[in-house]
Design a protein around this nucleic acid. Structure first.
Length: 214
DNA sequence: ATCCCGAGGG
DNA sequence: CCCTCTGGAT
């Protein structure tokens, strides 16, 4: 993708969706952290079903500790990787209570020190909860960035760094949501919906495989 | 590089 | 059946 295409690319996504948001359901920063931790290799819809049950009984770190690992495991059983995630959730709650006064820390370093929280999860929390212009490169963003030529890279970190240097500052906070939603509903993994893609005129892949518009 | 791991869609 | 879903730890 040419440098000159980046501004209109994001302007088009912005016009179609002025205030993009996560589709994860939460009512506090703690719940956001839990939902994002659970969302690894899982759909938002699936996570929302589980967190509806989980947050009803454990809306705070202390309440989740009181609930215990067995109960937490049962409540999130419908999500993939549920055993690992349950352990990570409970242990994360323990650290929040013992080291952060029951609050979610605001630094990348403290977030990534939580079990089950890596760079991508920390980036989501920093962006959604604290408004920082981070690029949380998930499966969607990795695919869209490479396919379109917006920010090609062989691994998520390489894509993230290229996005940070290439996305205009005015779009930096919302960019990660635009790219996710675009990947989820239009630029899908299996069958990309190029026919109804608003930004195909700037896309490397669509340009090489589809006729020019006329 | 490999493991974890259920739900939903094609 | 197969692939995909806002990955992280080893």
């Amino acid at each position: 993708m040419h440098d000159d295409a980046i501004e209109p690319f994001f302007a088009t996504l912005a016009a179609a969706n002025p205030s993009p948001q996560t589709e994860l359901e939460f009512t506090s920063v703690f719940e956001l952290l839990c939902a994002v931790l659970l969302s690894a290799q899982a759909t938002d819809a699936g996570v929302n079903k589980a967190t509806k049950r989980l947050f009803a009984l454990a809306p705070t770190p202390q309440r989740m500790l009181d609930l215990g690992l067995e109960q937490v495991t049962e409540l999130i059983r419908t999500i993939g990787l549920f055993r690992t995630k349950a352990k990570n959730l409970v242990q994360t709650c323990r650290i929040l209570v013992e080291q952060h006064g029951g609050a979610v820390p605001r630094s990348r370093e403290a977030l990534e020190a939580l079990p089950g929280v890596g760079r991508k999860t920390a980036n989501v929390v920093l962006n959604v909860a604290f408004g920082e212009p981070t690029m949380a490169v998930d499966t969607h963003i990795f695919r869209v960035a490479n396919r379109t030529g917006l920010a090609p890279g062989k691994n998520p970190l390489a894509v993230e760094l290229k996005l940070l240097e290439r996305v205009p500052a005015k779009y930096a906070v919302d960019a990660h949501h635009w790219l996710i939603l675009h990947g989820r509903y239009v630029c899908q993994a299996r069958r990309p919906q190029c026919e109804r893609c608003a930004v195909r005129r700037w896309c490397d892949t669509a340009a090489s495989t589809m006729p020019a518009e006329g």
